[in-house]
């Protein structure tokens, strides 16, 4: 006959072992679980940051004339006058700003897409940025209105037009 003494101790032992097992299971799975979701959230944040930066660059720092609420923005000036260096510096300054002294390390590659009015063809050209080497990247875009005066960007028509600036953004 099997002795039936100390059944409570047995129960306690088994319950404790199950608790330990559950804890180990929880700890192991949580670390694995978060990875797939996280990349999406980072993408989301990076995309928001990029479009915010482009929106900030597409607004003039100041305006005085109440009849002209949209003076030329730094972004428009950089594209019109073909100044990829000016654009890069401003873009990276805004993008890599952190609350600490340390700078973030974001990199980008910017494309301009434009329409040729006579042929009706849509073309695309590299504007600024560093080479893209298969890092995980997000795309942000911004419509940029181009004036017909002083437009020296090669490939663009000499007229008032809207071009699409497309920026590929990734963490370096």
């Amino acid at each position: 006959m099997v002795g039936d003494d100390a059944q409570l101790y047995t129960i306690e032992g088994i319950a404790a072992s199950v608790l330990i097992l559950t804890t180990v299971y929880l700890v192991l799975t949580t670390t694995v679980v978060f990875t797939p979701g996280e990349t999406h959230i980072y993408d989301m944040q990076l995309e928001q940051l990029g479009s915010d930066v482009l929106a900030a660059m597409d607004n003039a720092p100041s305006w005085n004339d109440p009849n002209d609420p949209y003076p030329q923005s730094p972004l428009e000036a950089a594209i019109e006058q073909n100044q990829p260096v000016v654009f890069s510096e401003l873009f990276l300054t805004y993008c890599n700003a952190t609350t600490e002294e340390r700078r973030d390390d974001l990199r980008f590659s910017a494309n301009i897409t434009y329409r040729n009015e006579t042929s009706g063809q849509v073309g695309s050209k590299l504007f600024a940025g560093s080479q893209y080497n298969r890092e995980h990247a997000v795309t942000v875009t911004r419509w940029v209105n181009i004036d017909n005066t002083g437009n020296t960007q090669p490939g663009l028509d000499l007229r008032e037009q809207s071009v699409l600036l497309e920026v590929l953004l990734w963490r370096g």
């Binding site: 009015e117 209105n145 071009v163």
Partner: peptide, 17 residues
């Protein structure tokens, strides 16, 4: 100019986005 820009937006949206 406005019609031109609108045509640009329509064409580029279709091509790129």
């Amino acid at each position: 100019s406005m019609a031109d820009s609108i045509d640009d937006i329509t064409a580029i949206s279709l091509y790129n986005k």
